[in-house]
Write a protein that binds this DNA or RNA. Structure first.
Length: 434
RNA sequence: CGGGGCGUAGCUCAGCCUGGUAGAGCGCUAGCUUUGGGAGCUAGAAGCCGGAGGUUCGAAUCCUCUCGCCCCGACCA
């Protein structure tokens, strides 16, 4: 993409409403614009990142055996009356009335809808297990939206729902998601740790939240140091026994403030780490909380009806954009992990209009591929280009100036480390190849 | 939902206390000069001073109401 044609409204100054780093940088780098309190427009660059994250989440869900579908944003209130949540959910639920005076709502979550789909379609235990998910916009009418996209009212979320014959089987579905989450966050370039969580209003008896570590994070977490160094295998057998792997990740002490056990933590001595983090995922096993009132049953092996055991598994996709920035930035701007970067390379033509630099840039642009490169071909000063490119945080920069070009050289800069090297054009191409 | 604050040019803000008809910096446009870390000079364009009502000869400024946004707290992917 040529920057001269791209819609990338960057800001030199920080809009006054933005308090935290990710919000400021998202506004400044031209990722989002606020539409109303807690509601945002995603500009092309931000949208590109959102799509990348979404795709990684999708791939890992599929890999774990979950199947994607798409449920509506607007839901019927009747279903919520069935589960008993229509009155319980409170003002966070945005309620709507249509022209026939029917009660609708903008979905804050989708347990009711998926349970309805399931009960109408599945009859036999032989159809189990099933894990279904979608990636859809949700709305929760937060009293006080803040921190930009991190706590908006409208947000993009992946939510998965598992259906099993009994709670032992459900535990396997739960473990599949647990492992999928570890893999997902690792691929996003994040250090995430699972914490045992309160089950909250959704209910149930098994729940973990996943916290991404970032020094500017909202909540405080305490955990064993060894948890930070754990890695997740690349070739997980999702059909096999996942319990050992889950145990490995949950065996060490880890707790947020609300579940923090000071005595237990103190016994860790020097291995205790206190850090800050951002919640980006939450998984629950809640048994028959929805299947029972809504009559989601299957015929079991013995011919008797069985109420299915369910779990639900959320990832805040749009929140992750902010979380990644909180975890990865410096004074000059964003530093995108390669896996989610909107472009792989920023190509800076330091003297647009100069035949030699133009030609070198054109060659690099074509060879690297216009989809992977953001080419700053604007008639701007070098300083402005450096600042803009650092701000938007692409992993690599290729800096092409007349002095280097005369020697057949360009400069390759790594955004994360700041390291620059002068290399030949061919060498730069080789280094940046897919 | 309790407490506080702010709405003036695209952005950051001054002006308001003490009413007299709109300002700065950045950005934008044009020209010249500059050209490796958000340039310099010159000349421009750009504002229903959030909205409504009121007080007054006169309101960005004072009063009332209203809408919007932000911050602290309680609550959440």
């Amino acid at each position: 993409m040529r920057l001269s044609r791209y819609f990338l409204p960057t800001l030199k100054e920080t809009p006054s409403e933005a308090q935290i780093v990710s919000h400021r940088l998202m506004l400044r780098a031209g990722l989002i614009r606020q539409h109303a309190a807690g509601i945002y427009t995603w500009l092309p660059l931000g949208f590109a990142v959102l799509r990348k994250i979404e795709q990684i989440v999708r791939e890992e869900q599929n890999r774990a055996g979950a199947q994607e579908l798409l449920m509506p944003t607007i839901q019927s209130a009747d279903l919520w009356r069935e589960s008993g949540r229509y009155d319980d959910y409170g003002k966070e639920m945005l309620r709507i009335t249509d022209r026939h005076d029917r009660d609708l709502l903008y979905g804050p979550t989708a347990e009711e809808v998926i349970t309805d789909v399931f009960r109408n379609a599945v009859r036999s235990y032989k159809d189990l297990p099933k894990t279904l998910y979608h990636i859809q916009w949700k709305f929760r009418d937060e009293v006080r939206p803040r921190f930009g996209i991190m706590r908006g009212r409208e947000f993009l979320m992946k939510d998965a729902y598992s259906f099993d014959l009994d709670s032992d089987a459900a535990r396997h579905s739960y473990n599949q998601m647990f492992v999928a989450y570890l893999r997902t966050f690792a691929r996003l370039g994040l250090k995430a740790i699972p914490l045992r969580a309160e089950t909250g209003p959704i209910g149930g008896d098994l729940s973990h939240e996943f916290i991404v570590l970032a020094s500017t994070g909202e909540s405080e977490v305490h955990c064993h140091r060894a948890l930070l160094d754990k890695t997740i295998p690349d070739d997980v057998d999702y059909d096999g026994d996942l319990q050992p792997l889950v145990n490995d990740w949950t065996g060490l002490y880890a707790a947020a403030d609300d579940m923090h056990d000071v005595t237990k933590a103190a016994s860790l001595g020097g291995s205790l780490v206190t850090a800050r983090g951002i919640e980006v995922g939450h998984i629950f096993h809640f048994g028959t909380k929805y299947s029972k009132p809504m009559g989601a049953t299957v015929t079991g092996p013995d011919g008797e009806d069985v109420t299915v055991a369910m779990g639900s598994y959320g990832i805040g996709v749009s929140r992750l954009v902010g979380a990644i920035i909180e975890a990865s930035h410096d004074d000059n701007g964003i530093i995108w992990p390669e896996s989610v970067a909107p472009f792989h390379v920023g190509l800076l033509n330091l003297k647009a209009g100069d035949t030699a630099t133009d030609e070198t840039c054109a060659r690099l642009y074509q060879a690297l591929g216009p989809d992977r490169v953001l080419y700053d071909d604007r008639d701007e000063r070098a300083g402005a280009k450096f600042a803009a490119m650092d701000l938007i945080g692409l992993p690599w920069q290729v800096i092409v100036g007349p002095k280097g070009v005369a020697k057949g050289m360009v400069e390759l800069k790594n955004r994360a480390t700041g390291a620059r090297e002068e290399v030949s054009v061919d060498s730069a191409l080789a280094r940046l190849a897919v």
